[in-house]
Design a protein around this nucleic acid. Structure first.
Lengths: 194, 194, 194, 194
DNA sequence: AATGAATGAGACTTCATTCAT
DNA sequence: CATGAATGAAGTCTCATTCAT
């Protein structure tokens, strides 16, 4: 990579980090381009070298977040035929993956998951993905059938939402994942673990 | 009430309804005073006769919503010593009260519960209220003790959030309340109902 | 007219005059809204109370000019069967009308007739109107037939363009109209006047 | 010429052609350097290797055009003592030269002759040159004396302006030159040709 | 009480131009 | 000679808010 290219990549990354930081703390509308470039320590026009507009910048960050979440969901499908113990372990792992995505970059999560416009859409999409998984899991006899899947999916999302909010600075991912798994088992799974 | 006062109250109510409608659909920042007064069919300065500022108007609506929610919470404390069956009935009633508040005026709920800034604060306050209740319930031996109360409170809020989002136009309050109660029992209560 | 309405009309007229003045002297692109409102002695937003945009303001002035020109053209059709002398008088009158429109408000003329974008379109439209007239005049045996009408129309426009440029501050309309009429007779009419 | 110099000259010529094309179609203000270099397929800084500024580039093109026009005018002085027939031929030749300059590169003409700022100045200069010629021609008894020269000069320019606008894609120079000559004879010369 | 008119402040975006490689 | 990257300087337009009637 030439010196120029390196500098350019550096600028771009500084802008990306700055945008994440400022959008997260002030939200889309209260964020001014001047805030972002001040944090990134570049000039205003530099912003437009890497993003077509304020909105495009925001959207690209949301996409980034959603992609990670989509990937985490893809890995979450529970295999049929597990022993109760393995089911629980599997659930811990799944929730752990989710919580990792949700807590590793709080600012990005704020943007993609908690801010009204973008977050609502993200959750709505995510609900769809989870319902897909759950329908298979239900057919596999893992999930209880007296509660419609959509509400079960909602519970998972609500759970993740709240856990993410509550997770402090230090890494409690494993602990929280366990709590989630336990609640999931008790509230949604057929086989009781404990 | 004099004719003049009636007229004034009418204007005020038109503005309030218009504000709820527009704030709910466009959010705080994308709402223009001109939008609100257009819907209310009054002039721009009229807005300032009843609200000190755009922000004050928004805040007053949020307060209105929070008050209702606070009231619902106050009534939710579970009495100790109930039979499992009565506990379940009590829970149904409590969730029903919550869901009524949350679904009776979707626009107001959108403003006070779902929009990032205000909603986050509302949920955070509400978490505190619920924790208060739960600590007593825990001492009364109703709640499981292997999961910290704050997470249990979080579960309730996450549940309500999701149920509210999923509730359609028709009134499903009772049905949803039952689902909530069941999940609550399975996931958080000590005495299993079913 | 109420005091308020009067003030408003005054502001609007000040803006209109200012816009004419500044657009005329600096052209569309070099004109800044801030220039216009400075001349009009109103605030920037006031401009947007009366014009949707800079472009809309410019266009409305161009329209104003074109309407006047259209009207002048409508009155210019030469009646058939005139004596050479009356023809000449008629022509003088017609050119006089045109030159009046073109010289009464030099700034507006600059905007609608001389500035590239708008002026070219104006002239092009005007050519069409004149050709309409000339085709009838030609059928009435007034115009020579060995030169295509479009060129004859072009001559008239070129003539007016140049005469307008040359007309000084003092009112030379009559004199210039006579010169135009003479050239018209010699160059385009069949019946020679002198 | 070295290879490098050749390459440089090539770049310069590409820029010049691109500038002519873009300035002509969009005008000075709506032309962006980025448009020009995109058409020329060179980088932005390359532009500044050959032109000091956007304005300098535009001006150099205007100069180029004016020089050609000046040269055409220089050759247009009508010799005294011609027979009517030769006068007409001479006029045809003169107008032909003008129209050649005006139509051979429409884009350059657009820039130097039709765009407001530059074109007005060009025409104004040109009027001066033509007046010089006409004063001699008048003394030589060729031009009528009842119309001030400046108006006669204006007529010529107006004529050329309009004819240039009307000239289509195919080469009608000769035909148009004849029409101009005829009008010139009828309207301005003393000796009538037809 | 009610409003048409007015404005201060500011945000986003664009673009000619220049460095540094 | 050539260029990717960067920026200073502006300009249009919007909007919450306030006068004056």
């Amino acid at each position: 990579m030439s010196k120029r290219a390196a500098r350019s990549a550096d600028t771009q990354e500084k802008l990306r980090r700055a945008a994440i930081k400022v959008f997260a703390s002030k939200g889309f509308h209260e964020t001014k381009i001047s805030d972002i470039v001040a944090v990134a320590q570049v000039s205003q026009p530099a912003f437009y070298l890497y993003y077509a507009s304020k909105e495009a910048a925001f959207d690209s960050l949301v996409d980034e977040f959603r992609t990670a979440l989509r990937e985490a969901t893809r890995l979450c499908l529970i295999s049929p035929g597990l022993t109760p113990d393995d089911l629980y372990k599997d659930l811990c792992l799944s929730f752990s993956r989710y919580l990792t995505v949700l807590t590793q970059d709080r600012d990005l999560t704020q943007i993609g998951f908690f801010q009204t416009r973008s977050g609502d859409a993200t959750k709505s999409e995510m609900t769809g993905w989870i319902i897909d998984n759950m329908e298979r899991e239900r057919r596999a006899g893992i999930l209880r059938t007296d509660i419609p899947v959509q509400y079960q999916a909602g519970l998972v999302i609500g759970l993740l939402d709240q856990m993410t909010r509550m997770a402090g600075e230090e890494d409690q991912t494993e602990e929280l994942a366990k709590i989630c798994a336990r609640i999931f088992c008790d509230a949604l799974a057929i086989v009781k673990v404990f």
